[in-house]
Amino acid sequence: MCRSGAPRIRRNRRREALSYQTRASSSVQSLPFRPPQSHRGGENRSVGVDIEMSRPMSDILGVAMSIATAQEIDLLRQLPAGEMHSSFFDLWTRKEALLKAIGRGFLVDPRQAEVGIGQGRSYVTFDAGVWTVETLAVSASVRAAVAIEGELATELVVRPFL
Rank of each mutant, 00 (worst) to 15 (best):
M1K: 07
R3K: 12
G5P: 01
A6R: 15
P7C: 02
P7T: 14
R8D: 04
R8A: 15
I9G: 08
R10N: 10
R14D: 11
R14H: 12
A17P: 01
Y20E: 07
Y20S: 12
Q21N: 14
R23Y: 03
R23G: 00
S25W: 00
S25D: 11
S26F: 06
S27W: 11
S27I: 11
S27A: 07
L31K: 08
P32T: 11
R34L: 07
R34T: 06
P35H: 08
P35I: 13
P36L: 01
Q37H: 09
Q37C: 09
H39F: 10
G41T: 13
E43K: 07
E43I: 00
S46V: 00
V47C: 14
G48D: 05
G48W: 01
V49E: 02
V49G: 00
D50L: 11
D50I: 02
I51Q: 02
I51S: 03
E52H: 06
E52I: 01
M53D: 03
P56C: 04
M57A: 12
S58F: 11
D59L: 13
I60W: 06
G62A: 14
G62V: 07
A64C: 09
A64E: 00
M65W: 15
I67M: 13
A68S: 08
T69C: 10
Q71P: 03
Q71Y: 12
E72C: 04
D74N: 14
L75Y: 04
L75S: 12
R77A: 07
Q78A: 09
P80D: 11
A81K: 10
E83K: 04
M84N: 13
M84Q: 15
H85V: 10
S87T: 02
F89Y: 15
D90A: 06
L91Y: 05
T93C: 14
T93E: 09
R94T: 01
K95S: 03
E96F: 03
A97G: 05
L99F: 10
K100N: 13
A101G: 13
D109F: 08
D109L: 05
P110M: 13
R111G: 01
Q112L: 11
Q112R: 14
Q112E: 11
E114R: 04
I117D: 02
G118Q: 12
G118L: 03
G118C: 12
R121T: 10
S122A: 06
V124L: 13
D127C: 14
G129V: 12
G129I: 09
V133Q: 02
V133T: 02
E134C: 08
E134S: 11
T135M: 02
A140F: 06
A140M: 09
S141Y: 02
V142A: 13
A144L: 03
V146K: 01
E149R: 05
G150F: 01
G150I: 04
L152A: 13
L152H: 02
L156V: 12
L156W: 04
V157E: 06
